[in-house]
Design a protein around this nucleic acid. Sequence first.
DNA 1: TTGAAAGCGCTAACAC
DNA 2: GTGTTAGCGCTTTCAA
Lengths: 339, 339
Amino acid sequence: MGNRAPTLEDVAREAGVSRATVSRVVNGVRNVAPEIQRSVRDAIDRIGYRPNQAARSLVTRRTGTVALVLSATGRSFTARVFSDPFFGRVVDGVLPVLRRREIQPVLLVAESEQARGQLVEYLRQGGADGALVVPLDEDDPLPSMLMAAGLPTVLFGRPREGERCAYVDLDNRAGARLAAEHLWATGRRRPAAIAAPVTAPTAGERLDGFRDALAAHGVTSVPVVRGRYTVDSGRRAMARLLKDHPDLDAVFAANDLMAQGACQYLREQGVSVPGTVAVVGFDDSVAARKARPQLTTVRQPVERMAAAMATQLVERLDGTRSEPAAEVFAPVLVVRESA
Amino acid sequence: MGNRAPTLEDVAREAGVSRATVSRVVNGVRNVAPEIQRSVRDAIDRIGYRPNQAARSLVTRRTGTVALVLSATGRSFTARVFSDPFFGRVVDGVLPVLRRREIQPVLLVAESEQARGQLVEYLRQGGADGALVVPLDEDDPLPSMLMAAGLPTVLFGRPREGERCAYVDLDNRAGARLAAEHLWATGRRRPAAIAAPVTAPTAGERLDGFRDALAAHGVTSVPVVRGRYTVDSGRRAMARLLKDHPDLDAVFAANDLMAQGACQYLREQGVSVPGTVAVVGFDDSVAARKARPQLTTVRQPVERMAAAMATQLVERLDGTRSEPAAEVFAPVLVVRESA
DNA sequence: TTGAAAGCGCTAACAC
DNA sequence: GTGTTAGCGCTTTCAA
């Protein structure tokens, strides 16, 4: 009980070799006679040796760890993160890439100013070899802070103006255009939009893309209400839109959750979807398929994007890649029932 | 650029003192003359020194880090975690306790057998000073593995039989009884239940408590359908119940999400809630208040429980507390609109 | 292929 | 109050 954990030294003694040899075996370096390898491994098992990560990091300057950081500047952070399938998809995309290389993924949350400070401090003191950052808000200073700290960093979404940081992103404008064109092509002439929160990184692009495409068809004014990326806010937004514009015949929501809320509200009010009002969502999350009616939506390949993000970071850590790059993914329209 | 990061040594030289003195200043140990403190701090700022966490851990045998582990043995792990507000509440409860003591919280996910192995290995190599574990499934071996590894661990929910592990829990039986008594007291005589997944840690207790309380009133048979803790599964369960038992007048769901789904389905079918069928949920999550009708539910003080869990671990790490303890919280019935 | 030895950057006795 | 010194457990030249 009071015993200290066995060290390399103990293994070496037990196996009758030098520490260097044990180290070689543990790290899978070649040039160790098979028989010695065996006896070292036996000794390790016998005394239950585990390498001390701190000692190892001290000399290798590596932790074998990558941080996945969820960061927000606004309020109700955890409520947002743990009720939006989006973040689960990011995690799903990142994990396999990291696990495959035996890199330990650690999730870090920066839910406040103070937390952001602690987090940066933690990382620059060697808490992880690199960071994958998913900012929930447009103005998040965290990416800049990490870049300044010299930590290899890849972002989900475009970095702030002037920031030279690796990132993956979706062509959000193009996605919104797809939605607009589909609605137009199916005869909708009085479309409205439920936009993202002003502070959301994608808010501007998705709304602009939608408006631009419609403008090209001569639709100059589109009613817009902002939601907060939740089902409930989608319902409320829909209620407002319907009250102010009872004749609208289509709604583009900036994510599936809000689209789902809009559908719910419409049907409760006896408005047929897609008969009277067509609804298009964004993301193609599980919510899109679960919703009734099933959502027509713009697919964002979140898992693939997240995997690309992780791959890019890992390659940078490997030295396989030197320059930070940008990878922009193309959206695809998925037509189901709601439009 | 190619420069190595500044070390204690560099600061010492810059400030014209010894490494020990710099160390004292950095660690806030008293017995350092104020003027020297100042000059050391200046030197630190000037050369941008950050302590190396690995070196520090090597000698202190501390990382200043606590792991919050979400672990599951079943499928679709991330989908569950990132769409159920429950986990957000756990995080909300844990964070402030840790932040206050400048302990870095790291979220670790164990979504597979392999991941569990890597995770245990990571922790026993000194990845964190202790672990707060939230098992999603009853049979999760992770707590035992961590105990075996000698890592200070506190669980959310009762440990497996025979396992001597600190934990916090809700008196789930009592909670279910509250629901049953309320329904009975308000004249419901044909109650049904939407139970938790068989594999959920709380499944048995909540169902048993509900049944026992009703049995005491002479209700010997209660229709039960199992859901999966999601809104959607609640809808489907409700559909089954209603089809098989069209005369039921009350439903107890094992969490709010399923209760919400049940309400949705009932209302869509033109069944009045609570007029014809009363619905009681469990947890008192945000979903309970957001749902229409607002949910009558059994409150589980998740944030407080999570905070208690963190506090218990922190005290053990401090040495303030030596014995692992159990803290069981009492549920409260919150009567709103649905029953 | 193996071993000896020199650190990695820091803390904590212990001496002054 | 401050400095000296001996490690913490590991990797990695460099010789043998």
